[in-house]
């Protein structure tokens, strides 16, 4: 509470690109031919695309929802399919998705279209056989198949991998007036403590040797866990303090980030390099410049 008056309040965002759906909605609003209702229909379509990037809701039910005719929904859908990226988005299935991609690539040759429409499951197989089936030279079939292999069957997949992760920072570096404060964000971690009620049991003679041994082991394990949890906390704080010192200008917004050598951190903190690597793994730090993976600061 002491710090409240001088603390700057701001929202923190992950330093990453928007999600696929956000990206599509932004694109949708740039399409000039759509009016307000069309935009609402378009957003509805986009937000209801499945994980693969396909539209699975019948156009009729969308039309009903917006009280318009089905053609109008179809018009919006075509605008999305033809103009928004990634190509193939909002198709009904993998076949339609690939056909859309071919059209948008401006492919004139009918062979790739034919292969997708009739022989999609066989594209990866024997081109000589396909050539005989289609009565076309094998070379042509081969190059059409090569082209088809460059297409994606599930347009949302490529995006999914780079979707901004839902990030919970482990470490927070806050700017308070002229100095930085480092603390842990253990929002999810409950306070855990040693429960000594059972300890007396160990030393009573009511238990068998085996039971006593088990309790001893548990006691040991509990101590060790609590100690390791404490060491984890203090090492993360030390890493945070180290960063405040070493990338001060970056944190102040006065310079680009120059990553620090892990060896230097290890040396300064007096722990092995491998320990630092463990400490960085999968953790994020919230700074006045955004939320970053902790590993971004090191090289």
């Amino acid at each position: 509470p002491v710090y409240l008056p001088s603390k700057e309040y701001r929202e923190y965002h992950t330093v990453d690109k928007p999600s696929l759906k956000e990206h599509l909605v932004m694109g949708l609003h740039l399409l000039e031919e759509l009016d307000e209702t069309d935009l609402a229909i378009g957003e509805y379509i986009i937000y209801n695309l499945d994980d693969r990037g396909f539209i699975t809701i019948p156009l009729e039910s969308i039309a009903k929802r917006f009280n318009v005719d089905t053609e109008r929904v179809g018009k919006v859908l075509i605008a999305i399919q033809e103009e928004l990226d990634p190509p193939g988005i909002a198709a009904r299935n993998a076949m339609e998705c690939m056909l859309i991609q071919l059209r948008r690539m401006g492919v004139k040759d009918d062979l790739p279209y034919l292969l997708v429409e009739r022989y999609l499951p066989m594209i990866g197989s024997d081109t000589a056989f396909l050539a005989r089936l289609l009565n076309r030279p094998e070379e042509e079939v081969k190059s059409a198949c090569t082209l088809l292999h460059k297409l994606t069957a599930f347009p949302a997949k490529a995006w999914q991998e780079s979707d901004p992760p839902s990030v919970l920072p482990d470490l927070i570096i806050d700017k308070l007036d002229d100095r930085f404060e480092v603390y842990l964000n253990e929002a999810m971690i409950p306070k855990i403590r040693y429960f000594k009620e059972y300890e007396t049991l160990i030393y009573k003679n009511e238990l068998s040797e085996e039971e006593q041994k088990l309790l001893e082991t548990m006691k040991q394990e509990a101590f060790e866990f609590l100690r390791n949890l404490d060491r984890r906390r203090s090492l993360l704080i030390e890493v945070g303090n180290f960063l405040v010192e070493r990338v001060h200008q970056f944190l102040c917004g006065e310079a680009d980030l120059t990553p620090v050598m892990i060896e230097e951190a290890a040396h300064t903190l007096g722990v092995p390099v491998s320990t630092i690597l463990y400490a960085l793994r999968g953790k994020y730090v919230q700074t006045p410049r955004g939320i970053f993976p902790l590993s971004k600061f090191f090289t």
Partner: peptide
């Protein structure tokens, strides 16, 4: 061990804590 706990994200750590609290008589959520 220590390194194992150090390497865990909060979500992973929460799993470990939940398991331990259930199986270890000497640990409890405060």
């Amino acid at each position: 061990g220590f390194l194992e706990i150090l390497a865990k994200s909060q979500v992973e750590l929460l799993d470990v804590i939940e398991q331990l609290v259930e199986t270890n008589l000497f640990l409890e959520i405060a």
